[in-house]
Amino acid sequence: MSTDTVTVTLIGGPTLLIEVAGIRILTDPTFDPPGEYPSGPSVLVKTTGPALTPEQVGAVDVVLLSHDQHPDNLDAAGRAFLATVPLVVTTTAAAERLGGSAVGVEPWRRTETSLPDGRTLTIGAVPAQHGPDGFAASSGPVIGFVLSGEGIPTTYVSGDNAAVRVVEEVVDNQGPIEVAVLFGGGARTRRLDAYLTLRADQAVRAARLLDARAIVLVHAEGWRHFSQGQADFADAFAAAGRSELVVLAPGERRVL
């Protein structure tokens, strides 16, 4: 049974500060200013900067990096930030490229880190599907995460995932989930007529599977290739009669 609270602060896009059990965890660091950012044959347009600078965020104990190959999940300033972090958990491919404190974990494997009070935080890697079926070879490997430990609310961080089926697999293998961080936005690029992250209707379906007490939306503002924004997700959850969605303004902090 969990006894700790989870505090979340939205930095912007996929970047969320999670504070639990005395440690500070950051997802997919993106701190670059608005502008155009090449991503393979595409150019992604960032429309707003981060709500907090790396200096304002301060020291972080762990980064959960779903992947390193796209600038809307890890940008230049985010890469520089990684050098200040004692533990970066990511895909094995990203860990090989990044070096330093990066630890690569395959889906359904896990790593651990010590908490200030002597307990252990388990960080489990789970699958993520960054696009339609068969797109993995083009998008590159992506993972999500499940945080767990004695007294710690089991927390799912989806990473860039576009498949509700993957969420079902996570629930079946790692549930019950108490808090979930879903990457939304219904991301699309010109080169592919498909969604690369969850749409609002898919997030509602995922919420039914997760049955979590809180679902924190990230990756739904700040970039032009996000086809749906925070309001679309809020409307979809309201229409479905669901109240667990947490929509944060950039810079907003919430205790869950």
Rank of each mutant, 00 (worst) to 15 (best):
T7N: 10
P116K: 02
T91R: 12
Q129L: 13
G58K: 12
L147F: 15
D72K: 06
R79E: 15
Y37P: 05
T111V: 15
L44I: 03
H67T: 12
D211A: 14
T189H: 07
T122R: 14
L121E: 06
A94P: 04
S158Y: 04
L248K: 02
A128D: 02
R199E: 10
L121D: 10
G118W: 10
V60T: 09
D72V: 11
F233D: 00
V85T: 11
T189K: 02
R253I: 02
A136Q: 12
G149W: 11
G184Q: 03
S139L: 08
F183P: 00
R191T: 13
I143D: 03
I177T: 07
I11M: 09
T47Y: 02
G241R: 06
T5F: 07
T154R: 15
G131D: 01
V126L: 03
A231I: 00
S139K: 06
V247G: 00
A94G: 15
R213E: 14
D235H: 03
Q129F: 02
G175F: 07
R254P: 00
A137K: 13
A249F: 07
H67C: 12
R24F: 11
D61V: 10
T5P: 01
N161Q: 06
E36H: 08
P41M: 05
V246H: 08
A76W: 11
A187G: 00
A83W: 07
V218E: 04
R165L: 06
